[in-house]
Design a protein around this nucleic acid. Structure first.
Lengths: 122, 122
DNA sequence: CCGATTGATGACCGATCGTTCCACAATTCC
DNA sequence: GGAATTGTGGAACGATCGGTCATCAATCGG
């Protein structure tokens, strides 16, 4: 029933992911997500419910499909900004970090690289 | 010349630091900093110039005086939220991480602990 | 064709954001 | 005792925030 969606959810999630991992969660406004995804506010909220809902979709997507820096950076954002106060995010992350065998060293190394800091030796 | 300050800058910076490391940089509003420090907006801006200025003061303070989780958490916040887009923060962090011999593993381990995630083994 | 349902579009909302400003108080120099 | 300077207290600012809503378009079952 009802009208068909004009957008591909996977594409939207991927574009939103890019916005989030550049500016972080709090640093990315819904207006920027609207621009990045090409969706209008109404459609975004109809599809994902909230900014947090969209972020969760990004996290789930990245956590199942992606690997490499994109996945790692979104995980970093989630760990620092959301996990301390959001049990659902925490659960997603704990499960995934364990499953992928991501180490503390991996996280720290990527955090430094993302911050454009290149340690002398560690 | 002029009136004397009624507040102790070190105390103010310490209280602001606490606010920042709980909620992150973007997640902490100036209103919350006003509450946390006890200063009024006027005094805060006169003393530190901006929210960023206050954060820089916290970072410098923590970087010279503190060690342990408080220092590490503020460094994490700075690394993830500010360093990618703020060369001054980047410089402060690079210098300090090197001087203290903080490793990627140290950063990652504290990031996980702060996120309330306890890895099985790494 | 006719309701019912879902998506698209974008104006609109109150709340909150970081910042500025101004009147007033205290301190210093002449 | 002014004049100059610095700090205090808090109202006010425009901008932006995340989120809602009403209207219209498309697609379905009957």
């Amino acid at each position: 029933m009802g009208r068909n969606r004009l957008f591909n959810e996977a594409d939207v999630v991927q574009r939103a992911t890019h916005a989030f991992l550049v500016a972080g969660y709090e640093g990315t406004s819904v207006g920027e997500l609207v621009t990045a995804t090409g969706l209008h506010r109404g459609s975004l909220y109809q599809a994902f419910g909230s900014k947090r809902g969209l972020f969760l979709a990004c996290l789930r997507h990245v956590v199942t499909d992606r690997s490499g820096d994109v996945a790692m950076d979104l995980v970093l954002v989630a760990l620092l900004e959301l996990a301390p106060r959001d049990p659902e995010v925490r659960g997603l992350l704990a499960d995934q970090l364990d499953r992928r065998g991501v180490t503390a060293h991996d996280l720290g190394a990527r955090l430094l690289a993302r911050a454009l800091i290149h340690p002398s030796e560690d």
